[in-house]
Amino acid sequence: MAEQYWLGGFFIDLSRNQITHNNETLTLPPKVLAVLTYLAEHQGKVVSQDDLLDNIWKDTVVSPNTLQRCIAQLRKALGDDSRQQHIIKTHAKKRLQPGMQR
C-alpha cells in the first residue's frame, strides 16, 4: 500500500505515523498503523487475530494483548470504540458444535 492513503474521512500518512481527520492530527506508533494498513488492505474480509500477529509481528513472539492494545488505540484515534464499531469490527470466534461438519 502507498505511504499515504485515505480511509473514509481519515488521511493516513505512514511516513509520519499520522492520522488526520477534520484538521486534527494524531501520531501513532508504527505497529498500530501497520495493523490499520493490513486491515485496510483486507477491507470487507474477516481477518483473524493469528493473521494479524503473523503478518505484523513477523518472527517476533508477542501476546494477543499486544494486538488488543493496538486495536484499542486505533479505535480511539478513529472515533470508534468496542461498543460502537463503525470502522474496525470484531467478530466472535466461530466454534464448531458437536455434530457439525467442516
Rank of each mutant, 00 (worst) to 15 (best):
M1G: 14
A2E: 15
A2Y: 13
E3C: 09
E3H: 13
E3V: 08
Q4N: 11
Q4L: 06
W6C: 04
W6I: 01
L7V: 03
G8H: 05
G8K: 09
G8M: 05
G9Q: 10
G9H: 06
G9D: 15
F10N: 03
F10S: 01
F11L: 15
I12K: 02
L14H: 08
L14V: 07
L14R: 13
S15A: 11
S15T: 12
S15G: 00
R16H: 14
R16A: 09
R16S: 13
Q18L: 00
Q18A: 09
I19W: 00
T20K: 01
N23H: 10
N23G: 00
E24V: 12
E24Q: 15
E24L: 08
T25P: 03
T25G: 02
L26A: 11
L26Y: 07
L26C: 04
L28I: 05
L28M: 10
L28V: 07
P29W: 01
P29I: 00
P29L: 09
V32G: 00
V32W: 01
L33S: 02
L33F: 04
A34W: 00
A34F: 03
A34Y: 02
A34M: 05
L36Q: 02
T37F: 04
Y38W: 10
Y38D: 02
L39E: 06
L39F: 02
L39Q: 07
A40N: 11
A40R: 06
A40V: 08
K45E: 14
V46F: 05
V46Y: 08
V47A: 06
V47R: 02
V47D: 05
S48V: 07
S48Q: 08
Q49Y: 06
Q49V: 11
D50M: 05
D50Y: 05
D51K: 03
D51L: 00
D51Y: 01
L52F: 09
L52Q: 09
L52D: 09
N55L: 02
I56W: 10
W57V: 01
W57Q: 01
W57D: 04
D59P: 03
T60D: 08
V61L: 12
V62W: 04
V62N: 10
S63T: 15
S63C: 07
N65P: 01
T66S: 13
T66H: 06
T66V: 15
Q68T: 15
Q68M: 13
R69L: 15
C70R: 12
I71R: 03
I71Y: 04
A72L: 11
A72Y: 15
L74M: 12
L74W: 13
R75V: 04
K76M: 04
K76L: 09
A77I: 04
A77K: 01
A77P: 05
L78P: 01
L78G: 07
L78C: 07
G79K: 03
D80T: 03
D80V: 02
S82N: 14
R83V: 06
Q84P: 01
Q84W: 02
Q85A: 15
Q85R: 14
H86Y: 13
I87N: 05
I87W: 06
I87S: 07
I88H: 01
T90I: 07
T90H: 08
H91R: 05
A92I: 09
A92Y: 07
A92E: 14
A92L: 13
K94S: 14
K94A: 10
R95H: 12
L96E: 09
L96I: 10
L96C: 08
Q97R: 15
Q97P: 02
P98I: 07
G99I: 12
M100C: 11
